[in-house]
Design a protein around this nucleic acid. Sequence first.
DNA 1: ACGGATTAAATGCATATGCATCGATATAAA
DNA 2: TTTATATCGATGCATATGCATTTAATCCGT
Lengths: 152, 152
Amino acid sequence: MKWYALPMVISPSENHIRAWARLVKASQRVLGAIEADLKAAGFPPLGWYDVLLELKRSDDGRLRPLEIEGRLLIAQHNVSRLIDRLEKGGYVAREPCEEDGRGQVVAITEDGRDLLNRMWPVYRAAIQKHVAAKLDDDEAASLADLLARLMA
Amino acid sequence: MKWYALPMVISPSENHIRAWARLVKASQRVLGAIEADLKAAGFPPLGWYDVLLELKRSDDGRLRPLEIEGRLLIAQHNVSRLIDRLEKGGYVAREPCEEDGRGQVVAITEDGRDLLNRMWPVYRAAIQKHVAAKLDDDEAASLADLLARLMA
DNA sequence: ACGGATTAAATGCATATGCATCGATATAAA
DNA sequence: TTTATATCGATGCATATGCATTTAATCCGT
C-alpha cells in the first residue's frame, strides 16, 4: 500500500503565541498612553511627528510622497491626506517635482521644524514615563534586538 | 550664594528610544501582515476574533460590554459598535442583563463559535509565518517576558 | 421614599481610514 | 511618431474611530 503524508501543520509554540498577543497589547497600550500625553499637551498625533521627522532627517528637508509612504509604511492615499493636513497647518509645503511631472516634493517649513522642537520634550518625557520607567537599559536593548529580528 | 537645582531632565536612553520605535514599527508590520492574511482568506478583522475569543473563554459564553471594554482595551463607543457589527453578522446576540437594568449581556452564538473555529487555522498559520518563522522559541519567550514588563 | 449624582450603553456629528478609480505624466512597444 | 501600459498622486464613497452628549437605570445621602 502506498502512503501519502498527511498535511503537516506547523504550529507556532505557546511562547510564539504569547509573544504575538503581548506585542499587540503592549504596543497598543504604550502607543495609546504616549499619544494621550501628546494630545494632553495640545499637540497633533504622532503621525504628524513621524512625517516631519523624516523630512527633517532628509538632507534638504524634502521628500517625495512615495518615499514617505515607503519609510513610514502608510498607505498611499493616507499619505496624500496626511500631507493635506500638514499643509493646511502650515508645517509642510507641496512643491512641483523637477524630475517627474507626475510627482510632488514635500518640504518641511520653519513652522514644521518648530513644531518638531516643541513636541520633542513632551514626546521624550512620554517615552521616559511609559518605556524607560519600565525597562532598564539592557532590557531595552534586548527588546530592540528581538523586534529587529521579528521584522527582518 | 544659594543654588537652586536646574530642572533635571530625565531622558530615555538611545536603547529605550530604539526599543520604542521598533515596537511601533514591528507591531504595525506584523499586525498588518496577519490582518492581510485573514482578509485574503475572506475573514473579518482581528477585532472580531478577539471579542469572540473572549466570549468563548468566559465560562458561559457571555460577557457584559463593560468587561469586553476592559479586557480588550477598546473605547466604550467602539465596543458598542463592534457588537453591532457582530450582531448583524449573527455571531453574537444581545440579551437583557438580569442584575443591572442599564446593562446588556453579549452572548456568542453557534455561528460565532463556528467563525472562531474556521478562522483559527488561518490565524495560526499567519502567526507561524510572521512570528514563529522569525524568532525561535527562546527568543519568543524573552520577547513575551520583556513585553510583559513593559506593560506591568 | 425622594432627588441628585453616577454609571451602562447608545448615538449624532466630525474626522480618519480603506478601497477603487481617476487624471496626468512617464515609459515602453509597434 | 503613435499607441498602449505603468506609475504618481488625488479623490469619491463606504466604513471605522474619536468625542461629546443622551437615555435610562442604579446608587447614595438625606
